[in-house]
Computed example of a mutant assay.
Amino acid sequence: MRRVTILWFLVAACLGVALFLVKYEVQDREEKLAALHREILANQEAVHVLEAEWSYLNRPSNLEAMVRRHLDLVPLDTTRLGRIEQLPIRLPSFEEAGTMTAGIREAAAATDDLPAFAPPAPLPRPITISAKVRR
């Protein structure tokens, strides 16, 4: 009987120590959880402040003032538009170039003469407008 009592006393002591350790572990984790909640709330408030600042800075009147202050934009007029003839000639793709080269070699072998290719004509310089339009 004495051994059983000692055994139950040891089991109760171990359970008491385990309960003590679990209690303080739970308290520690609750403190960490509360700290994380405070940090999340602080971050959410910071995000709200940043969104409000972003909305304030993206007001159309504010953007228009910054564009006028920092960019030298002028309205687009029709003299700055080009014609289709001014576009550069499209270069052949890799596959097309291979078949074209083979066709040129066959034609050159048949006539013993290489065809002459002219480079594309240079493009005209774009028109620049230096006058600023003021409203």
Rank of each mutant, 00 (worst) to 15 (best):
L10V: 12
R135A: 13
V22C: 05
R90Y: 03
V22Y: 05
G98D: 06
K132N: 07
Y24H: 11
A110W: 02
T5P: 03
L63C: 07
P119K: 03
I89T: 12
D77T: 11
L33G: 06
T101H: 10
R68Q: 14
R90N: 08
L123P: 10
V17R: 13
P92D: 00
C14M: 08
Q44R: 08
L114Q: 01
E30V: 06
F117Y: 01
I40R: 14
S55G: 13
Q86A: 07
A118Y: 02
M1F: 10
M1I: 07
A110V: 02
P115L: 00
I6A: 12
V47P: 02
W8L: 11
G16M: 07
T5E: 15
R2V: 06
P88F: 00
A118N: 11
E51C: 04
G82N: 03
E51L: 09
E106Y: 02
N43D: 11
F94M: 13
V133P: 01
V11F: 08
M100T: 04
A13N: 05
A13M: 12
R2E: 13
L41R: 13
L50M: 15
S61K: 12
T79S: 13
F9W: 07
L114P: 00
F117I: 00
E51A: 13
A13G: 09
N62K: 14
E30H: 06
V22L: 11
E25Q: 15
M100Q: 10
L33K: 14
Y24D: 11
A46Q: 09
S130I: 08
F117C: 00
L63R: 14
R59D: 05
L71F: 13
G98S: 09
V133M: 03
P88L: 00
R90G: 04
L63P: 01
I129V: 15
A46N: 05
I84A: 15
R90E: 11
G103F: 03
I6R: 14
F9H: 11
L33V: 08
A42W: 02
I40K: 14
R29Y: 07
L63G: 04
L50S: 15
S130R: 15
P75V: 00
A118P: 03
Q27L: 09
A131H: 05
R59W: 02
R68Y: 06
H37F: 13
A52M: 04
L87I: 05
G82L: 01
T111M: 00
M100G: 01
A118I: 02
L87H: 10
T101L: 11
I84P: 04
M100E: 03
Q27V: 08
F117W: 01
P88R: 05
L91N: 12
T111K: 03
V49F: 10
R2W: 06
M66I: 12
L76K: 13
V74M: 05
R80H: 06
A110F: 02
E31K: 15
E45N: 12
P119N: 06
G82K: 04
L87C: 05
E53I: 04
E25D: 13
P126G: 03
E85C: 02
V74G: 05
F9C: 09
Q44C: 02
F94H: 14
A35E: 09
L21M: 13
L73A: 08
K23S: 15
